[in-house]
């Protein structure tokens, strides 16, 4: 029972590390490719900026977690 909990905790910790790396990479990608465009959009088309903002923040949460889950599924599939 204890070893199961330990395994689950280790798995969660690894998942967090992978997710953390993806989140940071995502931010730098947005910063590198979209920062100037977003600043421009904020001045020129505020409604589009509002929609893109929500898309980016939800995307960060949903897409990256899905990628993390996918990576783990592939790794588990290989190890079995």
């Amino acid at each position: 029972m204890k070893s199961d909990a330990r395994k689950a905790l280790i798995s969660f910790a690894i998942e967090l590390v992978v997710y953390g790396i993806l989140v940071v990479v995502y931010f730098f990608l947005v910063l590198h490719f979209l920062a100037n465009w977003l600043a421009h959009l904020d001045k020129e088309s505020i409604r589009l900026y509002a929609l893109v903002s929500i898309g980016l923040i939800i995307g960060q949460a949903v897409v990256l977690e899905s990628i993390t889950t996918f990576i783990f599924r592939v790794l588990r599939g290989r190890s079995e």
Partner: peptide, 30 residues
């Protein structure tokens, strides 16, 4: 989301700052 959209069209959202905060928040929330 509704509040964010409402504030964003009033020019009150800096999405880059929100994304940086969210790098820590996403980990902390889990």
């Amino acid at each position: 989301s509704y509040g964010t959209f409402s504030h964003a069209i009033k020019g009150n959202v800096d999405i880059l700052i929100a994304l940086v905060m969210n790098t820590g928040a996403a980990i902390g929330a889990q």
